[in-house]
Amino acid sequence: MTPEPAGHAPTTDPASLGAEVAGDLLYLGFQARFLAESVRDLARSEGLHPGLAGFRMDPRSTVIARAMRCATDGKGDLCHPGPLAPGPALAFGATPLEFLRHLAAKGTSPASAREGGLSWTDLRRGMIGWGGPLGGTATQVLAGAALAFGQRGEDRAALVFERHSALQSGGWHEGMNLAGAVRAPLIVVIAAPKRADRAGHSDIGAAAVSYGVVFARVGTEPPEHLFQTVAAARRRGVRGEGPTLIELLHLGDEDRWAPHDAFAARAMAAEGLSEHDLDAIQRAAAVGVAHAVARLEKEPGPAARDALAPVCTDGPPPPPWTRRDPPGPDTPAPDDLTEQSHAE
């Protein structure tokens, strides 16, 4: 049996979260759901890469991310949304339009269309984007960021979402091992085991124990339960008690929304919300996503020369002439060749 995080107090009472958090969870859940639907629709109509036609999201990711201390001044917690974006990205302050711009590689995208993937980096809002082609890189990077928090004694923690396949990469284990060794305030969420992700070693709890890391496994538990599990893990990390590893068990499409819908019903009762109130929250989320979709079509793509961004802070962009504009007979000779004869 795997240990539950210390200080965990399961509850199904939305009031325990407070009205603001409960409202946020409802809104973010609906927003992420509508955004995921829009991504699939856009992919089918060639507005986005066809590979996104099967895009799904897990509403538990929104709850987990909202349990962190999100801020927009670069002093809050840090999150790598990973494979479960957009939920965590939205919780950390990204807008649906930014998300769609990024996926569509528009010239207005947060990464100026120079990076794709499901997430981007915005340190002001505490987001670290795609970590590269190999699973586990983000765990390494976020472990280092968390190490910095611990070193400075800050009330900050880092959250990273990884696929189950990360367990099959050495990089992930290196990151976890280091995070455990330095007691970094890090929460690692392993998500959605499926297909090839299942091919290798899959006992995440055993991995956690080997790194001296607290472990929790989440299935269809109520959002309140999940929120408090993460909040407790965060508090432990900030106190210097080390990382927590959370496994999100894979849920089917129907099951994955059931906890959110049940939560909505409980929240209505607890907060005295009417059907009309809930409908207003849903509509607000839907309108924001619809606006983003409509706007996306009018957004320009990047200009070709946007590829010439500097790769170093003090360096000029790489010269393109050898390929784009090769020197020909009319290319002026450098001054030093015309001023001096080298023929003698």
Binding site: Q140, V141, G144, A146, L147, A148, G175, L178
Partner: peptide, 16 residues
């Protein structure tokens, strides 16, 4: 774990 601690250095650099 050269990969692990170099990656962690990147995270620390992100944080200033």
């Amino acid at each position: 774990s050269e990969g692990g601690f170099t990656g962690a250095a990147a995270g620390a650099a992100h944080m200033g």
